[in-house]
Design a protein around this nucleic acid. Structure first.
Length: 906
DNA sequence: CAAGCGATCAT
DNA sequence: ACATGATCGCTTGT
């Protein structure tokens, strides 16, 4: 309890939040699209949504003890009687805004927030009265209003939050901030405003006098009254203008004076928080068709105490590490039959770099025991015991990164079965848009909280990666951290309905990927060396040719900055698209420029770009060829938020394919000794097939069942001609629309891509949607549903959370909408090929075949075929991929075979 | 030396 | 202003 410093205020400190209801509702209305937020019965709810979010935000961040919302009343105010032009000339209320104020008030009722309106007065007067009351009582008031009349209320204990952008970004105005911004104190702000005028209220000020002059005058004469008394002294145009408009100024000053003595409730209870009713809020939100996102953000302070009580779960477990044992040999066998018999969390101190396993030790942790095992000092008995334990599927093992562990252990001939939980995968499934480092940090904070709850937080930071000969204790603590985090992540998985995805898809896949990485793919360095040498020659040639076109000056062709100088300054070419830092020099721009100017420099520059890119790719690949003559990429399961894999060190998922020259790189990827062929198998148009499945569009489904070429079929419908009469142009345009749709392509973007007018692009899209309405409905509903639930979902229930779908920032919101369109499609394709990989790997193993999967490239698998196994493997792969998951159209799989990756293309 | 940017490769 | 990635070289900031 803090004792009061002044008499008469023996009550607890009050922090009253005052909101200008109409002003904020209007702001919300214009910050969010009215068409994007409706209750399903034609009533727009964007203002209600934005208002609620603003309220939740401010309450959560400012922690007021009391709240009141003030509204203007219909029917005018006393100010209209003083000045009949007050607020004249305002635009009519938008039709979609109508009714939303009543809905906001309904929401406030459910939240137990008092709202006020007083006949004949404005919201500002209500706020002024209450703010003044708080100020006299030396309590705090916090005003949220975009109306400038609120500025005069700022003072000791009274702060104004002015919305800056949208409804969530606020600027804090205390007396100092007001003075800083307007050069007058808050109480003199109405004086300034009277001189300057307020166009929003149709109150013209003194012509030729702006805030600078007004502030100067007020500073000189003290206040408006003294200024007007000395009006004769002021020289110049402004002085005359002032004398000519004294009447206006006096009127303005009367109009903008806030009324501070309204009769308003003054009951302790009236404005207190905590009187909301969760059920009522949900009813109102149901009625408004609000989704889960905003419900989650409802601050608990609105509800009665105890209803949202979160105190629970005191941990009985001590934070002290169990004694670390270092079992060796026969001891190990005993230990593994003892406390570790049911499973353990596992940590490893190695790294997977260029295919070299470097693990020296592993740490195992259970609730009661902890062991660090030195792999290099194990004797035969110990190794045998460890191998048996690791490969016993009935013993559950958890790890931060199971794939990494697989590498380190299998490099020493130890195979692992019976994985339980992989923290990195669990974290990713729950929060796919977070970077792994952030997730690790998040996990660490969870852990820290738990340890603090146990009041025995260790001082050391935990290093889940393990590293450079760190002490046994560090490794042991990492294993202990895994152990402690597993139950938390299991709960997390349940909450995100991702348990099955983790247990039955991602974690088993990790082992498969680990094997693929370890095997790698054979690369012929000589082929790459020749290719590099050839491109080096061509690079010199085109560079010289380019220089000769610009007076022989040897600029750096790789420097966008220097290129801009040459192209747009020296050669005076027309400036096209802009980038953040200047004018674009990308291939599209350069090609356009070439068409316009025919300047040979541009052609040479483009050629230089191509060969440079080629060399870059070739040299990168060569650097990654390991001792064994193979490239071992790393596949990541926790990077691409849609659920795709990513590949790095090097990236083998973006080896050139589009151009003839680029494809030659693929001829360096070859079948290795002891194997017969490379086989590639890819899904044909899997994303469009998923679109057909998810949208249930009959036309699209028929397209795939007909066996006709997809784009030809679709084009024949769109352009209303027989399939055989579809021209190449029709087909390629239709194809662009088909693929663009899944990416949220706009008419603008389509026009740019196809070099057609925006009108033609719009027509194309409309024509498409006319014939394939199911697709349009599906896309629209995807976004709508995601906005409501807060996430998108794939066919396997993989979620992606998209809070930006309700952002008041248009760019962010529209980006989230495109993501919402694309994620279920791209993500479902990722799900399907992952299922296929598990199946193919399992089938190969069960059939006792030596052939193996080497790479995955989103919709394609690359396998290495052992002698004599081609037919069997081909069937197995085609079936495995084709039947991986049943959707309403067939999943077609194309197969190619050859000595090199290029030859295996089909 | 790191970080941001622009460009370009893949599906 | 069309989704998901990786990588490189240049430029700029620490």
């Amino acid at each position: 309890m803090t004792s009061s410093e002044h008499p008469g205020s023996d009550q607890a400190p009050v922090r009253l939040l005052l909101i200008d209801g109409h002003a904020m509702a209007f702001r919300a209305f214009f910050a969010l699209p009215a068409d994007g937020f409706t209750d399903g019965r034609g009533q727009s709810t964007n203002a209600v949504y934005g208002f609620a979010r603003m309220l939740f935000n401010v309450v959560a961040s400012e922690r007021p003890t009391h709240v009141a919302v003030a509204f203007d009343m219909a029917g005018g105010t006393f100010r209209d009687r003083i000045y009949d032009q007050y607020k004249a000339g305002r635009d009519e209320t938008p039709a979609q805004f109508i009714g939303q104020i009543a809905l906001i008030q309904k929401t406030l009722d459910a939240l137990g927030v008092t709202w006020l309106e007083v006949p004949d007065f404005e919201a500002d007067d209500i706020i002024a009265t209450l703010a003044t009351r708080m100020r006299t009582r030396e309590q705090e008031a916090l005003i949220v209003s975009s109306d400038r009349d609120a500025i005069q209320l700022v003072g000791p204990g009274v702060t104004l939050l002015q919305p800056v952008k949208g409804v969530t970004e606020m600027r804090r105005m205390d007396p100092a901030a007001v003075e800083e911004k307007y050069q007058v104190t808050p109480e003199h702000y109405p004086d300034l405003a009277a001189l300057v005028g307020e166009s929003a209220d149709n109150l013209p000020g003194v012509p030729g006098v702006g805030p600078k002059t007004a502030a100067k005058w007020i500073g000189k004469y003290g206040d408006l009254e003294s200024l007007l008394e000395h009006a004769e002294e002021i020289t110049g145009k402004a002085g005359q203008s002032l004398r000519d408009h004294v009447e206006d100024v006096r009127r303005n000053r009367v109009m903008n004076a806030a009324v501070t003595d309204l009769e308003l409730p003054d009951d302790e209870v009236v404005f207190t928080l905590g009187r909301g009713d969760r059920a009522a809020v949900h009813d109102v939100f149901d009625d408004l068709a609000f989704g889960a996102t905003i419900r989650r953000d409802l601050p608990a302070v609105f509800l009665p105490e105890g209803e949202d009580g979160t105190d629970a779960a005191a941990d009985e477990q001590a934070a002290e590490l169990p004694e670390i044992t270092r079992p060796e040999g026969k001891d190990l066998a005993a230990a593994l039959r003892g406390p570790f018999a049911d499973g353990a969390a596992l940590a490893i101190d190695g790294t997977w770099e260029l295919g070299l396993g470097e693990a020296r030790r592993i740490a195992l942790s259970t609730e009661s025991a902890l062991a660090v095992i030195d792999l290099e000092r194990l004797d035969t008995d110990g190794e045998r015991a460890l191998a048996a334990w690791l490969s016993d599927a009935s013993v559950r093992k958890d790890a931060h990164d199971a794939k990494l562990a697989v590498h380190e252990l299998s490099a020493r001939g130890l195979d692992v079965e019976g994985w339980g939980t992989d923290l990195s995968l669990a974290e990713f499934l729950c929060r796919p848009d977070q970077r792994p480092t952030d997730l690790a940090g998040l996990a660490m904070r969870h852990l820290q909280e738990e340890l603090e709850a146990e009041q025995a937080a260790p001082q050391q930071t935990l290093d889940l990666e393990g590293d450079d000969g760190a002490a046994d204790e560090s490794l042991a603590r990492a294993a202990d951290a895994v152990r402690r985090l597993v139950p938390l992540l299991r709960t997390d998985l349940e909450e995100h309905e991702a348990t099955a995805l983790h247990d039955d898809l991602e974690l088993p896949l990790a082992t498969v990927l680990g094997e693929m990485e370890a095997v790698g793919i054979q690369v012929e360095d000589e082929v790459l060396a020749d290719l590099d040498a050839e491109h080096e020659r061509r690079q010199t040639e085109v560079a010289e040719a380019a220089f000769s076109e610009i007076d022989g000056e040897r600029i750096n062709l790789g420097s966008p900055k220097q290129l801009q100088e040459v192209l747009y300054e020296r050669l005076g070419m027309p400036k096209g698209r802009r980038t953040k830092t200047g004018y674009s020099t990308n291939a599209e721009t350069l090609t356009d420029l070439f068409e316009k100017t025919q300047h040979p420099f541009l052609a040479h520059l483009l050629a230089h770009r191509d060969v440079t890119k080629m060399r870059q790719i070739i040299e990168t690949l060569r650097r990654f060829i390991a001792e064994d003559g193979r490239i071992h990429t790393t596949f990541h399961q926790n990077i691409a938020a849609t659920g795709r894999l990513s590949s790095n060190n090097p990236n083998l998922q973006n080896i050139p394919m589009r151009t003839e020259d680029g494809r030659r790189i693929r001829s360096a990827f070859v079948v290795s000794e002891g194997y017969e062929q490379l086989l590639t198998a890819d899904y044909s148009q899997i994303e469009m097939r998923i679109m057909a499945h998810l949208s249930e569009d009959e036309g699209l489904i028929e397209a795939f069942r007909s066996g006709e070429d997809l784009h030809r079929f679709v084009a024949s419908r769109v352009f209303d001609v027989a399939p055989e009469d579809v021209s190449a142009a029709m087909r390629s345009k239709t194809k662009a629309v088909s693929y663009g749709l899944a990416y949220g392509l706009s008419a603008f973007g389509l026009a740019r891509q196809l070099h057609i007018s925006q009108a033609e692009a719009t027509g194309l899209r409309d024509g498409y949607f006319e014939r394939f309405g199911g697709v349009r409905d599906f896309l629209r509903e995807s976004v709508e549903q995601a906005r409501s639930t807060g996430y998108t979902e794939t066919i396997l229930g993989r979620r992606r959370y998209l809070p930006d779908l309700t952002s008041d920032n248009r760019q962010r919101r529209e980006n989230a909408e495109r993501v919402a369109l694309n994620s279920p499609i791209q993500g479902s394709a990722a799900d399907i090929i992952k299922l296929a990989m598990l199946r193919v790997a399992a089938d190969l193993r069960e059939a006792g075949l030596r052939s193996r999967v080497l790479l995955q490239v989103h919709d394609e698998l690359v396998l290495e075929i052992a002698p004599g196994e081609l037919e069997q493997v081909r069937d197995l792969v085609v079936t495995g991929m084709g039947d991986a998951y049943e959707i309403s159209v067939p999943l077609e799989v194309g197969v190619g075979v050859g000595r090199t990756w290029l030859d295996a293309a089909h």
